[in-house]
């Protein structure tokens, strides 16, 4: 098993290398010119050219790629063209809100979706099942920003129950922190809940169709909760898998959610950086998000060995 874990960890290295290559070449090709943005509206073309030379934007591709790769390996993601701050420190400043949002969404989604999926599987074929699954399809189909604005309007402006926007660091207390995260998490969680609920339902049905469960049923366990607890344990692998894969949705959705709710996180940093063509920041962020995504799915893979003793490596 240890061998398997090591192999999996090692297998992420070439993946990350390829990601790095893709990310660098993508943004190298970008036509926008940060130099003229920096120079401002009153700058002369000479100003722009001088700024470009100062930033090293006029050097050839390979020189810049190898320099960049070397920095990455040393944990240096470069310096933002706009803020003149290290990209790593920009990420550090922004990571708490995004981490909070993602974690709260994750917990909320699992807490809502798994019971819903189990319920649907339990009542399979009934209107309750169909209702839940219909909701899941709708959850997939309504864009996250629409949900966001509806929630903000209803719960923050009309009812005045929760703050409209912003983020309070957890250091200032749990309640202020969570207050700011409830609406964004629900908005962001919609699609994730739909995904997890569906997988839970189908994984449960798969397990319930297994011979040993049929036997247990025949022995009189029937539709008891105990049976479902056992079945859920056995359905854990696909559920955990989808939670891992769904991280991509969560990361993508965070970009939009953070814009809607003015959360100063990595998603907003990404949008700002792209609009301003701040190459080092875009590169650093895409690389970091991909790294997190790979890491989460690595953990998911490793978790199989604990979740399902039948899987041997």
């Amino acid at each position: 098993m240890l061998g398997y874990v090591l192999r999996r960890i090692l297998s992420t290295v070439p993946v990350m290398a390829i990601v790095a290559m893709i990310v660098f070449s993508l943004l190298y090709l970008a036509p926008g010119d940060p130099a003229s943005v920096i120079a401002g509206d009153q700058a002369t073309p000479e100003d722009v050219a001088r700024i470009r030379a100062n930033l090293g934007l006029d050097r050839p591709f390979l020189v810049r790629f190898f320099e960049w790769s070397g920095q990455i390996v040393r944990g240096d993601l470069g310096t933002s063209i706009f803020t003149n701050l290290p990209v790593t420190s920009l990420i550090k400043q922004r990571i708490e809100p995004t981490l909070s949002l993602t974690l709260v969404t994750l917990i909320l989604s699992v807490l809502v979706a798994v019971p819903l999926g189990v319920l649907a599987a339990w009542k399979v074929g009934t209107w309750l099942d169909r209702g839940i699954m219909a909701l899941a399809v709708v959850g997939f189909s309504v864009p996250v920003f629409v949900v966001g604005y509806v929630l903000a309007y209803l719960f923050a402006l009309v009812l005045d129950w929760l703050p409209v926007q912003g983020y309070t660091p957890i250091a200032q207390g749990f309640w202020p922190w969570i207050q700011n995260l409830i609406l964004p998490s629900i908005a962001l969680g919609g699609i994730y809940i739909a995904l997890i609920a569906r997988i839970t339902r189908s994984a449960m049905l798969d397990v319930l169709a297994q011979d040993y469960i049929r036997t247990a049923r025949a022995k009189g366990l029937g539709q008891t909760p105990t049976l479902f607890v056992h079945a859920l344990k056995n359905a854990a692998v696909p559920i955990v898998t989808v939670i891992g894969l769904g991280m991509a949705l969560l990361i993508g959705g965070a970009v939009v959610t953070e814009s809607v709710f003015a959360i100063p996180g990595l998603g907003r940093l990404t949008v700002d950086a792209i609009l301003r063509r701040d190459y080092p920041v875009i590169q650093g962020l895409v690389l970091m998000f991909s790294f997190v995504y790979v890491l989460v799915n690595l953990l998911v893979d490793i978790s199989y060995t604990f979740l399902d003793p039948r899987i041997k490596y």
Partner: peptide, 12 residues
């Protein structure tokens, strides 16, 4: 249709 940065580059 583009962003302010690209306009800045292109107009020069």
């Amino acid at each position: 249709a583009t962003d302010w940065g690209t306009v800045g580059a292109r107009r020069a």
